[in-house]
Design a protein around this nucleic acid. Sequence first.
DNA 1: ATTATCTATAGATCTATAGATAATGC
DNA 2: ATTATCTATAGATCTATAGATAATGC
Lengths: 209, 209
Amino acid sequence: MSSEVTEMRKSRVAKSETHKRIIDIAARRFRERGLEGVSIAKLMEDAGLTIGGFYRHFDSKEALIVETVDRAFHDVDVWKTSCKDISEFIAIYLSANHRDHPGKGCAMGTLAVDISRMNGPPQTFFTRKIQGNLAYFEQCLLDESADERKATATTLLSCLVGAIAISRAVAADSELSDKILTDSKHGIAALLKRKVDALDRQVSATTTK
Amino acid sequence: MSSEVTEMRKSRVAKSETHKRIIDIAARRFRERGLEGVSIAKLMEDAGLTIGGFYRHFDSKEALIVETVDRAFHDVDVWKTSCKDISEFIAIYLSANHRDHPGKGCAMGTLAVDISRMNGPPQTFFTRKIQGNLAYFEQCLLDESADERKATATTLLSCLVGAIAISRAVAADSELSDKILTDSKHGIAALLKRKVDALDRQVSATTTK
DNA sequence: ATTATCTATAGATCTATAGATAATGC
DNA sequence: ATTATCTATAGATCTATAGATAATGC
């Protein structure tokens, strides 16, 4: 602390990198500990900074939350583009790895309830991202009317978000926690049978023991 | 405040009623505002008491949380016994009324994520209640193997919990919020088709416009 | 001259405890 | 005598601001 050389003002470019770093860390910590479980002082410390600089980057904690929403959805956005089909996406989403690393996972599973307790901008931005995820699922679905696709997409989203949340809540009972993930995968496979732009073989492969 | 007559010591019976009242209010407030969003001082004020008395009832806030878990699941427990079949349960669970009154609704939808961030006793007790809900769903399911029943029960639970959480997160967009509830009902009806101890007519009635 | 970050702190809140008060219960 | 609840407060936070410092950028 006192033995460190105090680094002072950096360039504008460096500032925007700092800004990005704060958001990166916020997106992780918020998902891990909740919006109220992360203090600005600790957040800045995690970023290698002190609390004083925070308010030159953000007007308030709420403003940080708003700016962090996009970043918190980024990991799932990457899965959406990197997965070759919806089955692969579901397998990643309902994996033990996702369950055990909420800070790098789906923001809906970790932050939806916190966000529902806030009004105004945070909820608006969060809603937009949820709509994006619903659109992705719809686009993966095939042999139904538009209404049917929407309904199935919504059901799929609900099931994924619920499953990851419940599996984490029972994490102390690791067998049950695993079972919730695999059983939900199984159930989703049944729900999506012949409704999905994916190899049926694959859906079964991830859900049949 | 200062004009009120200060009421002092009450009987043991009165104390146990006070104890119950604190838990009643905690169960509501925790579901509404989250475990961290409720301070003990405000909680006691809601109960018509002051903070000083709290620690004669509970060793700590965590101890209150543990004791409150059962009460927070009570409303859903009532639905389980009062609903004549699973379809009715699902209709109540995915109603706008449930969405708009989290303090009187499902503890999994409101507290599972908060609980997953705590270790120890709160999580253990919460897990037990989740198992009870899974058992209820299993018992409602019919034409499958025990494994299939378990998988469908888990999927149903995941879907319900996810749908209510997401519908609340997008509450600012009331159309979308409603749609998430009705679409999930629709999707669940498809999932449960011929798997459920319920009138198919009824499942359809709540999900077809 | 401007500004990105720092140290320090005000003011609000939160959990938990100490000790007073007044009613219960022996 | 015991105890259910009260008032008051210690000590630890948390958000946000004030003013200092030292580097950037004109």
